[in-house]
């Protein structure tokens, strides 16, 4: 138990240092080739039925943080967002998976409104 607490403190201290004490990443001296490396930023989604589908299928095109960024939205708005992804952007999501994803979004990030 104690070990876990110490470990947790070390991890959070490490995360703090990474977040606050890494010097600003400067671009390479401007030669003919200008390159950057994008950071990987983990995003957490709420646990619930369908989360795996959301992570893999929505994650094809965008990071999961698009979801918790939104205000709580009515179920029908979430459903129309899912169908926009399929119709406009061609997300390869089956009808069944679309239902699972819409239900997850409404349950975890929805309003009481139907």
């Amino acid at each position: 138990m104690k070990k876990n607490i110490v470990f947790a403190i070390l991890v959070s201290a490490g995360a703090f240092l990474i977040q606050h004490h890494v010097p600003m990443v400067q671009a390479e001296e401007m030669g003919p080739v200008h390159s950057i490396t994008l950071p990987t930023i983990p995003a957490e989604l709420k646990e619930g039925a369908g989360k795996d589908k959301v992570m893999t299928l929505c994650g094809i095109c965008h990071s999961p943080d698009y979801i918790p960024m939104q205000p709580r939205l009515p179920a029908k708005t979430w459903d129309s967002e899912v169908h926009k992804m399929i119709k406009v952007f061609g997300a390869p999501i089956s009808d069944e998976d679309a239902k699972t994803i819409s239900s997850y979004l409404a349950a975890q990030y929805g309003t009481d409104e139907k």
């Binding site: 950071p39 930023i41 990071s63 943080d65």
Partner: peptide, 11 residues
Amino acid sequence: PEKTDLILLTS
């Protein structure tokens, strides 16, 4: 890269 601390909306 090339930016300072900014508020994350999406990555």
